[in-house]
Every structure is written in structure tokens, then in C-alpha cells.
Deep mutational scan, measured.
Amino acid sequence: MGFKLLSKLLVYLTASIMAIASPLAFSVDSSGEYPTVSEIPVGEVRLYQIADGVWSHIATQSFDGAVYPSNGLIVRDGDELLLIDTAWGAKNTAALLAEIEKQIGLPVTRAVSTHFHDDRVGGVDVLRAAGVATYASPSTRRLAEVEGNEIPTHSLEGLSSSGDAVRFGPVELFYPGAAHSTDNLIVYVPSASVLYGGCAIYELSRTSAGNVADADLAEWPTSIERIQQHYPEAQFVIPGHGLPGGLDLLKHTTNVVKAHTNRSVVE
């Protein structure tokens, strides 16, 4: 069995187990497998329904001669939608809004960016022009300005110390501490036991640490421990890039980060 097929099978099995364990909360999309990078042309966006009122959005972007996937989250909030992270750029984010209108038909009224990198804030200006209120932590807003990236308009308070959590509509926002970046936030959907790890969490097929220019490698494993301790009931975990899975993604990420750190020390 090929690795790609095995990865998709694991996603399907995880979703099936969740649907059985929580039949009222989960209505997993039966329309197909989780979209992969090879299936999404740059400039297009796919939506994948995880649970009743919960979707991931998947886009792709060219970077350094390669094409990478990027995940975000959409959560229903009454007759409105909360968006977590842009679709990595203005063109993708405009396509995301169009796809949401086509498939869901509810307005996106608020959006949260989970850290300051372009795959999370690139497209904020498109959201703002569409009347979406954009939010991020003060740290993310400051770092985005320093980096020359787009800056969300509103500040999220109460997320300055490791372990801080605040309720934001249908989700809980959690600051686990520094990891992929010093400002990275985690998003949890309690009604569906869905954990969105953003770039602080890796997919299972990833074996290298990737972009760690703004990471705190020493603190990252401790931050992941905080996530595990705060959300032990999480059933569906979405990484910032690639295929979702279960809580095993947290341990896998820790292993990859520690291996990278150990290699760096040896070198």
C-alpha cells in the first residue's frame, strides 16, 4: 500500500471513529477524501466538511520552486461564519470567499490569524475590503508590521502568557507558548472536538522541520505538551499544512522538532 493511500485511509478511519463516538456532533463529509496538494491548482481553494458547521479550507501556493498546501478553518456561528487564517495570499483568499459563498452561503463576518507569517495573514486586506472584521493577538499584529505583512485590524486580548485561553464565538483560542513562531495560536472547536494546530503542528508525513527561522526550538516541545494537557479530548487535529489526523500529530511534531534540534547540535 502506497504512503499517500495509507495517509488518506488514516484520515478516513479517524473521521469514521469520530462519527461513531459522537453521532450528534459529527456529520463528516462523505463526498470524498481530504484534498491534497496535487489536486488543488494554485489560485483555487477546496472546502472539506469535518463536522456539522465545521470545515477546513485548503489552498496551495508556490514557494521556492515548489507547491505547498495550506489549511485553515471555518466555523459556523449562528447565521454567520468565523474564518481562521487566510488562504495564503490575496488571490487565494478572494477564491476562498467565493467558494464559501458557493458552498455554504453564509457571510464571513470575523477572521482570526493564528500567527504573523504570510500563509496566515496574506489576504487580510481582501477580507477587510469584503467587510470582514480581522483579528490577531497584539504580538501577531506587531510582528506582521515588522515583517511588512498585512496586519489584522483588531487585537485579541488575554493571550499574552503561555497557557492563556479565551473564548471567541464558537471557538476557544489558546496560546501554548512559542513553537513554530513566538505568537502562534491554537484554535479548538469544543462542539466538535476539532483542534486546529496551525503551523505549530505537523502532518504525519512530514519528517523535516522546514521553516524554523522564527521558531523557538527549545520551547516548542513544552508548548505541545500544554496543548495535549489542555485538549486531551480532541479527536480531529488539523495541521497548518497537509493531512489531518488525531492527537498523534502532536507527538510526531515533537519528535521531528527534537530530531532537528539534535542534528543542529551535532553539526
Rank of each mutant, 00 (worst) to 15 (best):
G2P: 05
F3Q: 06
F3W: 08
K4E: 14
L5W: 12
L6F: 08
S7C: 08
K8M: 09
L9F: 10
L10W: 08
V11C: 06
V11R: 07
L13G: 05
T14W: 04
I17L: 04
M18D: 04
A21W: 12
L24S: 11
L24I: 13
L24Y: 10
F26T: 07
F26H: 04
S27F: 11
D29L: 10
S31M: 15
G32A: 06
G32S: 13
G32C: 09
Y34T: 07
T36M: 14
V37Q: 13
S38Q: 12
E39R: 09
I40T: 07
V42F: 06
E44L: 14
R46D: 07
R46K: 05
L47D: 02
L47R: 01
Q49E: 08
I50K: 03
A51G: 07
D52E: 07
G53Q: 07
V54S: 04
W55Y: 09
S56E: 07
H57G: 04
A59G: 06
T60I: 08
Q61G: 06
S62H: 08
F63I: 07
D64G: 07
D64E: 08
G65S: 09
G65L: 07
V67L: 06
V67H: 05
V67Q: 10
V67P: 08
N71E: 00
N71F: 00
V75F: 02
D77V: 08
D79E: 13
E80N: 14
L81G: 04
I84Q: 00
A87Y: 00
W88I: 00
W88N: 00
G89L: 03
K91I: 12
K91R: 14
N92P: 14
T93I: 01
L96Q: 03
A98C: 06
I100M: 14
E101R: 13
I104E: 01
G105Q: 12
G105T: 08
P107N: 13
R110H: 04
R110Y: 10
A111E: 14
V112K: 02
V112P: 02
S113C: 06
T114L: 00
T114E: 00
H115W: 00
F116Q: 03
F116L: 03
H117Y: 00
D118I: 11
D119L: 00
R120L: 01
V121Q: 00
G122M: 14
V126Y: 15
R128V: 05
A129H: 08
A133V: 12
A136M: 07
S137A: 10
S137L: 08
S139T: 14
R142K: 10
L143H: 12
V146R: 12
G148I: 15
G148K: 15
I151G: 10
P152W: 01
T153A: 08
H154T: 07
H154G: 10
S155G: 08
L156A: 08
L159I: 12
S161V: 15
S162V: 14
S162P: 12
V166D: 08
R167Q: 05
F168N: 02
G169W: 04
G169A: 11
G169S: 05
F174N: 04
Y175H: 05
G177S: 03
D183G: 01
N184T: 02
N184F: 02
L185N: 03
L185T: 15
V187P: 02
Y188W: 06
Y188Q: 02
Y188C: 02
S193V: 10
S193C: 03
V194W: 01
G198T: 03
A200S: 08
A200H: 03
Y202L: 13
E203A: 14
S205Y: 11
T207E: 12
T207A: 10
G210V: 12
N211Q: 06
A213N: 11
D216Q: 06
A218P: 09
A218F: 10
P221F: 11
E225D: 15
Q229P: 03
H230P: 03
H230S: 11
Y231T: 04
E233H: 12
A234L: 15
Q235C: 15
F236Y: 03
F236D: 14
V237W: 02
P244L: 14
P244F: 14
L247T: 10
L247E: 14
L250K: 01
T254Q: 08
N255V: 11
V256M: 15
V257F: 05
R263C: 09
V266P: 08
E267N: 04
